[in-house]
Design a protein around this nucleic acid. Structure first.
Length: 513
DNA sequence: ATGTCC
């Protein structure tokens, strides 16, 4: 029996972490020496390990934030102010050492210290679940293959190879994969989630997720880049000068990741509450090397593996249906945590653009919108911006503003027809979603020029669009819920309208003249 | 983003 319990050490002001582990080790020795008096033992601990560190506080000033973004016009300027405000709240978190804002940045909700989409942070020895967001491992995956048939018949095959929308597929339609049999389900962040993971295999969810069919001419330069980046094992089948079809999918870890995040966020709040009296929920962290941190890290690695298997399952089903085989693969996550040394880099809509352990630059995919090419980019490994590139074009306009600009079904469908002319665009749930068409996204050329201007990445190829499947408007979406007004807000609006009406009546009854 | 609040 130790003279002091772990609980007593925490009460004495020591924190969870490597130091606490050392102290607990030392207590075993004290116990063996026959020391049983807790007061005396605590005195010895203080002498050997020093006074417990003081409670942490939020930084008074945010740490450095580098901005790889140019705001053109008033809307973009206001967007940048909002992004900056959220980032600066987050950058007061003591474990964060730097933040970056990328060209596609826009706020993710209105909560304090929420990392913007198109944002990344460097965190020392800690993981901040909210900074990779609940859409853990939202990622890109491309397979090159030789065209087998017309775009429309290959799009038909794609429609039956994947599924969009909320909810899970029927048990009869389960897509099996060895990833479900990995020995991970006793991890506290994963336990009980295996069935959910199985149900979602080959699903893509909704929102901005998509399955995109495109084409690319593979040049000698492109082949050289693929070899340079360690993709040569799959480039044997590629011929320079030939045009290949490419399937590109974009989705995250579905219900599996959402639940892992929820659990991680709860654990992080508990951990941080021991160290800080007050902190924004979005700043809560786990120590990477103690407590729940290592198990959470392991769970994240599995979620990454599962998500990659999910992409592959869709690509495999598609290639089987059209009778083709993949000749090259490119993939990257853009919502995730990556460890480099003792630093944990968190990206929310940020494409990794550093060099791997062998010094090879990373290859990534940046989609812009359904009518623009998907960029194949070689990371510039620019430390000024934590070696990240953007993950897309970024939102240009809020959903509410979009509705104002295109009131009514006719204006909407005219705009969609104009913006997607010549492309085989399909909305899985039936109704188009204007907020996912090109009009809702920032100008693609502008994003490309900012990638070059800030030296974030080099565009080495473009996958030209042929067709795209997105969830579309499924009726009741999560996003619509967010925009629903609370009963209090509705009462306020009605109250104001009544007052205006009364005022008008009064002024007409009692005209000034 | 999330079987649209475990």
């Amino acid at each position: 029996m130790n003279p002091i319990s772990k609980k007593q050490l925490l009460e004495a002001g020591y924190h969870e972490g490597p130091l606490l582990e050392q102290i607990l080790q030392h207590l075993v020795e004290l116990d063996q020496k026959g020391i049983t008096d807790s007061k005396y033992a605590l005195k010895l601990i203080r002498r050997k390990f020093g006074e417990p560190p003081p409670k942490l506080v939020l930084r008074e000033k945010p740490v450095e934030c580098a901005e790889a973004i140019e705001a053109n016009g008033r809307d973009e300027q206001e967007n940048l102010y909002a992004v900056r405000r959220h980032m600066q709240e987050l950058l007061k978190t003591p474990v964060i050492s730097k933040g970056v804002i990328l060209p596609d940045a826009c706020p993710m909700g209105g909560k304090s210290a929420s990392i913007p989409v198109g944002g990344a942070i460097a965190v020392e020895n800690a993981i901040i679940p909210a900074a990779h967001s609940s859409d853990i491992c939202c990622s890109m995956f491309a397979t090159f293959y030789e065209a087998r048939s017309s775009v429309s018949s290959e799009m038909d095959a794609l429609m039956s190879s994947t599924r969009f929308g909320t909810g899970h597929r029927h048990l009869d339609l389960l897509v099996d994969d060895p990833v479900h049999d990995e020995d991970v389900w006793s991890n506290p962040f994963l336990t009980g989630l295996r069935d959910r993971a199985k149900l979602h295999m080959a699903d893509q969810g909704d929102g901005n997720h998509f399955a995109f069919l495109g084409e690319i001419e593979v040049t000698e330069e492109m082949l050289a880049v693929l070899r340079l980046t360690g993709h040569h094992s799959v480039t044997a089948g590629l011929t320079a000068g030939k045009i290949y079809r490419v399937l590109v999918t974009h989705h995250g870890s579905r219900g599996l990741g959402a639940h892992v995040f929820k659990r991680g966020q709860i654990a992080a709040m508990k951990h941080t509450a021991k160290l800080l009296d007050r902190f924004p929920e979005n700043a809560a962290w786990l120590d990477a090397r103690s407590g729940d941190g290592p198990a959470y890290w392991e769970a994240l690695q599995y979620v990454a593996m599962w998500t990659k298997a999910n992409h592959r399952s869709i690509h495999r089903r598609f290639l089987e249906r059209i009778g083709a085989s993949g000749v090259a693969e490119i993939a990257n996550e853009h919502n995730f945590v990556w460890q480099r040394g003792d630093t944990f880099f968190h990206g929310k809509g940020a494409t990794p653009a550093w060099r791997d352990a062998d010094g090879k630059p990373l290859l990534g995919l940046i989609p812009l919108n359904m009518a623009e090419p998907i960029l194949v980019v070689l990371g510039a490994d620019n430390p000024d911006f934590l070696s990240f590139a953007p993950h897309g074009a970024g939102r240009n306009i809020s959903r509410a503003a979009l509705r104002r600009r295109f009131p009514g079904e006719l204006a909407k469908s005219e705009e969609i027809a104009r913006a997607t002319a010549g492309l085989d665009v399909r909305w899985y749930c039936g109704k188009p979603d204007l907020s996912e068409t090109p009009v809702a996204y920032k100008n693609a050329q502008q994003v490309k020029s900012q990638i070059a201007k800030f030296n974030l990445a080099e565009v080495v190829g473009e996958i030209r669009p042929l067709g795209c499947i997105m969830a579309g408007d499924s009726g009741k979406s999560w996003r619509d819920r967010e925009e629903e007004l609370s009963p209090k807000q509705i009462r306020q609006i009605q109250h104001r309208a009544d007052r205006r009406k009364n005022h008008q009546r009064m002024s007409s009854e009692f005209p000034d003249i």
